[in-house]
Design a protein around this nucleic acid. Sequence first.
DNA 1: GTCTATATAGGGATAGAC
DNA 2: GTCTATCCCTATATAGAC
Lengths: 206, 206
Amino acid sequence: MTAKAPGAGSPAGSRPEEPSEQKSTRERILDIALELFTEQGYDKTSLRQIAARLGFSKAAIYYHFASKEDILMELHLRLHEFGRGILANIDAGKMSLGLAAEILDQLVEQMMGHRALFVLFQRNQAALDELHRERHDGAHEDVEILFRRVLSSQQIPLRDRVRIACALGAVMGGVLFSGDVFSDVPAEDMRGMLQDAARALLAPEG
Amino acid sequence: MTAKAPGAGSPAGSRPEEPSEQKSTRERILDIALELFTEQGYDKTSLRQIAARLGFSKAAIYYHFASKEDILMELHLRLHEFGRGILANIDAGKMSLGLAAEILDQLVEQMMGHRALFVLFQRNQAALDELHRERHDGAHEDVEILFRRVLSSQQIPLRDRVRIACALGAVMGGVLFSGDVFSDVPAEDMRGMLQDAARALLAPEG
DNA sequence: GTCTATATAGGGATAGAC
DNA sequence: GTCTATCCCTATATAGAC
């Protein structure tokens, strides 16, 4: 809680893809971190490694981030950003198979567009959980939390709840595989097929 | 590679649920490890913690296991055991939506029956990957690897490949949620609904 | 803004007593 | 079969020079 750096106060103000400008050091740290955290896992990645890739020393990172966890937190906040548009639509009170299908349509789009971030947190759930445990500051309205609330709602028929859970799993699984076994398939085709799959699961009759 | 202990050579010989006998220390270590690894993550769990729960010191664990990784490996092997029956049925050469549905039926059954192990490795993929990287000894015919092979097969129509991937994601997601938001639902009901969902995704028309 | 040097802690693992 | 004591390494993080 000591370091104060250039872009420290504007997590949403820094765009991931700048036109032609060269990225700030802070941005580059985040990029490398995303890469290494995903490949090796958050815990097995040291600040030393991140610094080495960027050509400077470990200690320099502390100018830009107060702690290793802060790097993960910042990446986490970005994922939140992208989930923002979806949040408003999720309401356990008035949920239906049809509405779930619409939400999943958006979700697929967001996940496909920010696959790297999505994979990162899919592969580092343990680290994320700890983050949530320690810093439950801010009304932490997470997409995942809202989904859990929907899935727990007793106002929705059990079969529908299960179907929504499966549809969520289906699209998540699809996105995960899309960069791997389906890397040859155009993203748009993938997106369409995943959305179709979700709709198949959420059809009233099935 | 130093420690040789009582049950060291019989990973499959020790049953998880013994009638009324008290479990061996080795078995108890594995139980606690499964619990802590799942809750906190493999990397954030220290041998000290495991030992503390069992009432003895960290060093004592080294009598039963050669390393921390060995504990994870043993748990991994158990998961393999349960996947054995499924392995034989997976063949990229003659895969179809119908066959996939049958395989997923078995998979749901196995996953529901050994949910704890399944969740462990779902939440510690990074650690598992490293395990596979370092010790790729033995014909490591993993269910996951075989599934990837099927999903990559060019002999299967793309749409079917995606559908199978989604069905896999659907049942995995369902099983993951089953101990959480669906903890009140009887396992058998869950199993049936998940199998139905998989079939809905794998229907020729959808 | 990046460095060196250092403090401090905790981890995995070994040796050997009991 | 479990313990104590210890080694060695790497990690995060801090202080302060440039």
